[in-house]
Amino acid sequence: MPPAGATSVKTAAPLDEAGLIRAAQQGDEDAFERLVRAYDQSVLRLAMNLLRSPEDARDVYQEALLRVFKNLHLFRFDCSFHTWLYRIVTNICLDHLRKRKVRREENSIVETAEGPLDRMDSVRTHAPYTDPERHTLNNQLTARIRVALDDLTPRERMVFELRHYQGLRLKNIGEVLGTSEEAAKNCLFRATQKMRVVLGEFV
């Protein structure tokens, strides 16, 4: 099962990336555009899959890549450009996820006669954007997986996203998130274990 997006890094290989970065650092906007195009689809996919909202994904894309443009002169080639770019993107996505989590925790629990009820439970199973062709027998499992993903902490969700959907190795994930490979490994373990518990007999 090749993870989705696993080939995204490969598209950058034929480019003379260092040359493009240097040119972009000197203000060459064509070079900047070519550089961005090697990665921006993965960036958008990451934001869309994490936030499940085209508007939020658009905001992340815009904020992240504009930040890249404005700070490119600070890039010193001491890590890969992909890692540097993903540090920016994942920080912005984590902020979105954290704000969303706080909002959800503040607003979604309502007291009822039967005890507290999470209003999001009825919403989560319907993603804002879904492909109608995917409405098969597995629909229920898919919805359940989305609930399980929502229950992860922002950091666990991010590690799972980067490993499973973006195909990054844990070592690289550690570099992106400013932590060790071991910490990323623990995070991935916690994420998958929580999902396994939520999914129960569904799998």
């Binding site: 099962m1 961005v36 195009r37 869309m48 085209p54 658009r58 879904t130 499992l141 959907y165």
Partner: peptide, 25 residues
Amino acid sequence: HMLQACDAAAVPEPPQLLAECRHEL
């Protein structure tokens, strides 16, 4: 099975979104 099923739970970006984002950028 669980990890394979996660692939189906991916939320793809709407077809025009990338082009729109590039234009705005």
